[in-house]
Design a protein around this nucleic acid. Structure first.
Ligand SMILES: [Zn+2]
Ligand SMILES: [Zn+2]
Ligand SMILES: [Zn+2]
Ligand SMILES: [Zn+2]
Lengths: 129, 129
DNA sequence: AATTTAAATGTTATAATATAACACTATGTA
DNA sequence: TACATAGTGTTATATTATAACATTTAAATT
C-alpha cells in the first residue's frame, strides 16, 4: 500500500471531500492556504494520484474525482455516468460491464490494456424537473 | 443532409485527409493559407462538425478525427482504440459493443443518451516492435 | 423580389488548462 | 555514508478554449 506524500494527501483529501469533480485550478485555489501555490504542484500530485488509481480524470470535463471503488485496478478500467444538466458524475461499478469491456477484442486484433467509458444523460433528479 | 459552410468544409477536409487525429492549433496552422486566421474560426467549425457527427473529439488527446462510420447517429455513440505508443486512433465499429452499451442501464436508473469509450493499448505494429 | 431570421464569419482580447526547466530536499536502501 | 529515487518549490511559458462584438452570408417567409 502506497503512502501519499504531503502534497498528494492534501490534494487527495480535497478531491475526496468534494461532492463533484474538481478542476485543477479550483483545487489550486482551495489549497493555497495550505502552502501549495503553483499549478505544477497540483498537476504533479494529480498525475501521481491518477497513476495509482486514487482519483480518476473525467476526460470530457477536465476534472478529477476520487475513486469510488477500490482504486480500480490502478485505473485501468473506468466508467462514469455524467449528468449533462447538473454535471453530477458517478463512477459505475458493474461487473457485467467491466467483464464485457475487459474481454472486448476488436477486429484488428489489438489487445487493450485500459479503457475509459463516459455515459451522458440526465440524472434522476434532473429528469423529473 | 447538411451542407457544410466554407470554413466547415475546409476544416473537415483537412481532418478527413489526416491519417491521425488533429489538434485544433495544428488545424489552424494548416488552414491559414486558406484565410482562416483565428482559433475561434477553427473551434466554431469543430463544434459544428462534432455536433453533426462528421468528426469526433478524442477526449483523452484533445484531438479530432473524421468519422469512419456514417456520422455515428450524430455522435451519440462513439468508441475508439488508441495506441499508446504510436498514437494511432481507430474508430471501432462493432454492433455487439454498440448494442451492449446502448442498452446499458446503471443501478441508479439513469437513462443514457450518449456515450464515449476509449480503449488504450498497443496496436499490432507496435506490439511486434 | 423584398423582408425577416438564423447561421456563419472576422477580429481582438483573454480565460482556462497544462508543461518545461532547473535547483533543491526528503526518503529509502546498499 | 553513499547512492538512487521520488517529491518539492519556483519562474516562465506552452497549449487549449472561450467571451464579446461587429459584420456578412444564406435560408426561410412574406
Ligand atoms: Zn475507480
Ligand atoms: Zn442532474
Ligand atoms: Zn463515427
Ligand atoms: Zn502503435
Amino acid at each position: 500500500m502506497y503512502t501519499l506524500s504531503k502534497n498528494q494527501q492534501i490534494i487527495f483529501d480535497i478531491i475526496d471531500k468534494s461532492p463533484e469533480p474538481m478542476k485543477a485550478y479550483s483545487i489550486l485555489f482551495n489549497v493555497q492556504k495550505k502552502g501549495i501555490k503553483a499549478p505544477l504542484q497540483v498537476y504533479r500530485a494529480l498525475d501521481k494520484l491518477v497513476e495509482i488509481g486514487k482519483i480518476h480524470k473525467i476526460e470530457s470535463r477536465n476534472a478529477f474525482i476520487a475513486c469510488q471503488n477500490s482504486s480500480c485496478q490502478v485505473s485501468k478500467a473506468t466508467a462514469f455516468s455524467i449528468c449533462e444538466s447538473c454535471e453530477k458524475v458517478t463512477e459505475i461499478n458493474n461487473s457485467s460491464l467491466s467483464k464485457y469491456l475487459s474481454n472486448f477484442k476488436d477486429k484488428a486484433g489489438m489487445k487493450y490494456s485500459k479503457y475509459n467509458l463516459e455515459f451522458f444523460g440526465l440524472c434522476k433528479k434532473c429528469t423529473t424537473k
